[in-house]
Every structure is written in structure tokens, then in C-alpha cells.
Nucleic acid binder design. Structure first.
Lengths: 233, 233
DNA sequence: GCTTTGTATGTAACATGTTAGATGCTATCT
DNA sequence: AGATAGCATCTAACATGTTACATACAAAGC
């Protein structure tokens, strides 16, 4: 099939503030924070009315969330917040471990003392948040630290990719926080990672990461027993 | 903002054959095969007419392609096939290397003799395609081999993720094929990877992968000299 | 009671109309 | 001539109407 030909474009970059992007951000946040619970129906018209827009930007945002695995669309039936699937979470953990280990490996070679300093500063703040039992703050700092690791590779767009692939895990972690706080343990793991970067010893960081992941898998099994309605399969 | 609450869903999986998915597949294929050249304008109405559907499924497909980095949307202006960006390709190579190295590491532990046999069979076919100088066939087999590696991890959905993240690279490789065939070299690299899996030596495979990537980066610089219109930056 | 069939309902998918804004061209002024 | 302002044009974004289909439920048959 011949598809067309003709005009070409020049240059420029636009920062999109389209409604569909705002809706995407709002819904994504609502899902990851479990304000919208796994399995819950999403009624486009209701959301549209609540946000004061038409169905179109809602549908666009939801399609993107479906690609990301955060919602399930059943044609002609309904759209639902995706339930947790241990299989998919396992895959996400694998992807995350692969990407972050590689990022750390690279960061360990390239990271400047300045970046290390900023990471240590983040860790200090995490300590404060942990002492206060401030989940939200702790969680935000945790995300920021991971973003720093992505950014410290110097690779354009890597942060967006890792962030996207982490969304399943982020949601699971938030749910786990309500049941069992592992902030102090997480803090120790983070310190190990930063030390590894500073010492340029990525293998140690990889080991820590694996331990962290297997720990989380165990906790997810507990969560499934307590809250089976959150899970698919 | 309160977002709603209410009905829940039960079970089931639907195979989507929606028009937007068909359009997505057609356009993606057209872009990766360079039937639609980098920088070329995509006129939704023209595509819609050619495919005999309305603008809606075209827009849906294009939004997805934009997320994937294969098209650039300039609001109120136009939509264009993404030009090649060395920065983004470098990131994609990093991601690919990270994921496939990790996959091979895991595959090396889990792969059955049967899977190894199928991979070797694929290699034989690649040899035949290379002898015939059959780019298309060679390329398809190459993709199939990479998919086998993803699948051999046993991780649900990993193939889709790697495939998505590889799309930038796939497109670049196809363009390179027109200028310089590296089929015999690629074949040797593939053989090294399979041997590594069979020998359970992932480190060797990782080294091969890195060599392969740096080789490709060099070729991309040549391509940019010869065909600067394909590149952004 | 249990299964089956028909029907009503609700939704995503799709079609199409409208709007706002970006670009490019042209006419005007200096 | 070169810059500028106004205007025509084109497009993505958005709104809204329509359709086809999956599900649920109720009625009918066994």
C-alpha cells in the first residue's frame, strides 16, 4: 500500500499543555496512589464531567494508560483500573533491575562528586522523612533519587522510559506502605547503592537491588492474601 | 479531587482487532521500513481516506506512535515521521543492551535444549538468507531471534517491552542495510550469543553486544553525512 | 430448580463537526 | 528593499453524535 508523500517540516519543540496530557497526569497519579483502586470502573463520562472536559481527552489519556498497563479496556463493556498481576509485576521488576543496574554501572563511571553530593543530600532528607513516618514525602524522595540515577547516565530520555516501566512497581509499593513500612530497610539499601556509585562498585549495587526485589515479592504475596480483590490472575 | 467510585469488573481477556490497532500496525510497519521517510508529513485525512476509515482511529494510532517516538506531533501545525536523533538512538541502544543482556543472563540459566535448538535453526535460516542477500528475510529472522531470547526468560510481556524500545534501532538498522550490509558480521555475533547461552556464559554475550552497538554507532555517523535530511540535531 | 433465549442497557469504538492556534503569504509602510 | 501587520489556510485538539457489541437480566422452556 502506497501511503503518501510530500511536505516536510523544519524544526522546533513545543511543550504540550494539552488537556489530554493534564488528564493523563491526573489519572495516572490517582491510580498509582490508589485513590482509584485496582479493579474499579472508570466511567469516562463521569470523569469528563468532573474535570469539565469532553470525552475525547479522557479517552486519549486512558488509551495511554492502557499502553502503560495501568488500566484495562474491555471493548463495548468498560474500562477498569488494572488489577495487580504478579506476572506483570515480576516482569516490571526484571526490567527495572536491568535498567537501573546498567544505569548505575554507567553512572559509576561518569558521576561527578556534585551528583554524589546531591544524592547524599536526598538520603539525608529520606532519613528525616523516615523518622517522621512521612510516607508521602519518603516516597517522593525515593522517586527523585531513582530519577537522579537515570539522569546521571547523561542519556536523553532514559528517565521517562524507566519511570514508565516502573509504574506497576510504584503502585504496588504504595499499597505495601499501608501494610508494612520498610522505610528503614529501604534507606539502608539506598545508602548501599549510593556508596556503590561513589566507590564505583556496581556489582554490589546489583546484589542489593536483587535482595530488595525478592523482599518485595514476598511482601506482595502477603498482600495478596490480605487483599485478594486487588489482584488479577 | 475526588474521582469516583462504584462498579467493578470480573475477569476475561479480549483480543483486540480494533481499527485503531490495525492502523497502528500498518503505520508502524511503514515507518520502520522507511516506506514513510523520516521528516515526512503525515496527513491524517489522506491516510484516513486511503485506509477507508475516519480520522479517529488514525489519530489514536498516531498518538501511540508519538509515545513510541516514531512520529512528532506539532499541535495545530502537523504530524511528521520522526527524524533520527542520535541522542535517542543512543538511549535506545543502552536500553536494549541492558534488557537483552539481562534476558540472556536469565535465559542462560533457564533455557531448555529445545529452545537452543530452535535458535540454532533460526541461525541456519539466517545463513541462507545472508547468502541470498535477502535483506528482508534476514531482518525478519533477526527480529524473531531477539523475540526468542525475550521469550526464553519466561517473563510475561517482556517481548512487547523490548520490541517497543527497539523500534528506533530497528528503523535505523533498516536504513543502514541499504548502504552497507553487515549481515555476515551480524551472523557471527548472533552465533556468539547463542553459544554464550548454550555455554551459560552471559558475560561473553554482553561483550559481543557492546561491540555490535559501537559498530552501529559508527555506521550511523556515516549515514548522517550521506543523508543529513534523515536526522534531527 | 436449572438452563436457555431474548431483550434492554451501557460502553468503547468510530464518525463527524467545531474551535483555537500556528504557519505562511501578501500587502502595506518605512 | 526590508520589516511588519493583517489575513487566509491548514491542522491538531476538542466536542458531540452514532453504531456495534458485550454483558446482565428477565422471561420462557425443560
Amino acid at each position: 500500500m502506497q501511503l503518501q508523500s510530500g511536505r516536510h517540516f523544519k524544526e522546533q519543540k513545543v511543550v504540550s499543555v494539552a488537556r489530554k496530557d493534564q488528564v493523563y497526569t491526573i489519572l495516572r497519579q490517582a491510580i498509582i496512589s490508589s485513590q482509584l483502586a485496582p479493579g474499579e470502573a472508570i466511567r469516562k463520562e463521569v470523569i469528563a464531567a468532573q474535570l469539565g472536559v469532553s470525552r475525547t481527552p479522557i479517552s486519549d489519556a486512558i488509551n495511554r494508560l492502557a499502553d502503560e498497563g495501568l488500566v484495562e479496556i474491555y471493548p463495548q463493556t468498560g474500562t477498569f483500573v488494572a488489577r495487580l498481576l504478579l506476572d506483570k509485576i515480576e516482569t516490571a521488576q526484571f526490567v527495572r533491575a536491568a535498567l537501573e543496574t546498567a544505569a548505575i554501572r554507567r553512572a559509576a563511571q561518569q558521576s561527578t562528586p556534585e551528583i554524589i553530593a546531591r544524592m547524599r543530600q536526598n538520603l539525608e532528607q529520606q532519613k528525616i522523612a523516615a523518622d517522621r513516618q512521612d510516607f508521602e514525602q519518603f516516597y517522593e524522595l525515593d522517586e527523585a533519587l531513582h530519577d537522579m540515577i537515570s539522569d546521571s547516565t547523561g542519556l536523553v530520555g532514559l528517565r521517562e522510559i524507566t519511570s514508565r516501566e516502573r509504574s506497576q512497581i510504584d503502585r504496588a509499593r504504595r499499597l505495601l506502605l499501608h501494610y508494612e513500612t520498610r522505610m528503614s530497610e529501604t534507606l539502608i539499601e539506598h545508602e548501599a547503592i549510593i556508596s556503590a556509585i561513589a566507590d564505583k562498585d556496581p556489582e554490589r549495587a546489583a546484589k542489593t537491588m536483587e535482595a530488595h526485589i525478592s523482599q518485595m515479592s514476598k511482601m506482595l504475596l502477603h498482600l495478596r492474601d490480605k487483599r485478594p480483590e486487588l489482584f488479577g490472575n
